[in-house]
Amino acid sequence: MRGALAPLAVAAVLFAILPMGLSMAGSGYLFRLADVTLIFCILSLSMQLITGVAGLLTLGHAAFYGIGAYTAAILSTRVGLDAGLTIPVAGLVSALFGVLIALPTMRLVSIYFAVATLGLGEMIYVTLLNWVSFTRGPLGIGDIPPLRPFGFDLSSPLGTYFLIAALAVLSLLIVHRIAHSYYGNALRALREDDQCADAMGLPVVRLKIEVFAIATFLAGIAGALWAHTTGYVNPADFRFAESILILAMVVVGGLGSIPGAIVGAALLILLPEALRAIGEVRILAVGLIMFLCILFLPKGLFGEVAALDLVRRQFGAAWRGGSAARPLGWR
């Protein structure tokens, strides 16, 4: 992502070559696939900020995605709010929950934070599932209107694709500017050693809450896009397994790397689709790829930090006892 050529190339592929190719193929399925891939790019980029850059292992990211989706679903079906408003509002509501959850949990150290996000994520899922009068529970919410922001009809496959691509590029820009600035250096310092960062004058808790708010805002946007393009939301789409999928994208792509988050998302969405022919075994194939990746590509495709190192540090002294941990070379 250096120089002016890379962004230009990304823009050309996203806004010209890809939509042209998809239009010629003329398949709604391929457009849908491109949409889902881009939505997950937003999700993996936002998690990259929390986990890859700031080093906070979060296991509840799908919950914020779900909050965004349900916010958009409820506002557009019950209040009749325009999609031009439901999308930003979904981001803000998700970020609000992000801050509310971050306030107490950011004071937790290491693995306790991961466990807390896991628990809170499941609580949000259970709430979506059981608050039937508000969320219709396991029935889900259907008939969510397609994307017609401010009277512009973007409900065609091409229109929808362009809006999602534009928002994905905006997310990319936000994450890129945060990660590749001195602010990003401060976040990386938290990942490396937050106690030491504290001694260097960084307000650790404040920084963690800020980065969590920014990332959950983007996850909420992704959720709203999912709701409007699927037309239907169901709690099952925002379970723990979905958080793990997003985490896997970040890990395979490489912690701390922006191209990594994008490639990881594309790989883990498109690969299972490409392997549809071999049936349910494809899920196994994906698992195998992740396993091999952690074994042979400890830093993922483009990562700054080995995923195992990050996890090992989450466990702290409990893990460091064995000599097996040494060769990976942390400290």
Binding site: Y183, N185, A186, R188, Q195, G201, W330
Partner: peptide
């Protein structure tokens, strides 16, 4: 020794300067 191993030497030292001068997310954004 508590250096930040996965960051460059420059980035390591910049953290000290950032800490003293303060940092705002929306400014960077």
């Amino acid at each position: 020794l508590r250096i930040f191993p996965n960051m460059t030497v420059f980035d390591n030292v910049s953290v000290g300067a950032i800490g003293r001068l303060g940092i705002e997310p929306f400014e960077s954004l």
